[in-house]
Amino acid sequence: MPLLPTPDTSHVDYDQIYEPSEDSYLLLDTLSSDSEISFLKERFPTQNAVPIVLEVGTGSGVVLSFLTTNSSTIFGHDSVLTLGIDVSTPANKATNETISRNKPRGHYLDSLTANLVSPLRDGTVDMLVFNPPYVPTSELPILPGEEDAEGGRKLDLLELTYAGGPDGMLTTDRLLDSLEKVLSKDRGVAYILLCAQNKPEAVAERLRSGRYGEEGIRWQVEKVGSSGKKGGWEVLGIWRIWR
């Protein structure tokens, strides 16, 4: 496994933006593992149309920056376009800065303020990466702009980075429902982080049997990275999902 540098995020304000943690580092390790490098190189060879790589929920931008800076190792070439989405505009500003200070080799387009993949056109994304708000909570926090409609509930950007509703799956389920539309038909692939409390084997089974989205696509699903103590309450896994 190549040892690639972790992007510098020392400029980021962790009072309102998620600080790179065990889950972020598991994504970096998994996306630069021998098995994933070989999968991605074969899927996105240099002579073909540029792949569009989207990270949803970029936070500090550490994962998207890692992919943009190390594109020649991970994809075998620098001919990639990277794009970020976060509901938090401060996170998007932080991502812009993280990428520009970590010597990007692939081409970074933009970070957009949006709710999951809502502004993207169908079939656009070739590789999607999502470190969701996966911690089980009784309900979801409000989004920026919803303060008045929700009777003055206070916006908490940090809570938005982790609170996932029942099973920690409310937001992830919505993203998984949208994969059939947003991923490109011929070569789309997604990397999703799940924790043990998300009941990941059941999620994988729902994906394999076509129970996400409207088209009933039977996805191929494989666990390609994991960390955490088995006795501890947070055991993390990275799941690769592809057609």
Binding site: N96, D110, S111, L112, P119
Partner: peptide, 18 residues
Amino acid sequence: VYNIHQGIANFLLPNHLA
């Protein structure tokens, strides 16, 4: 109308449209 401010476009929708 989606606003672009300091180079960042905002696609968050008011509740009734989301």
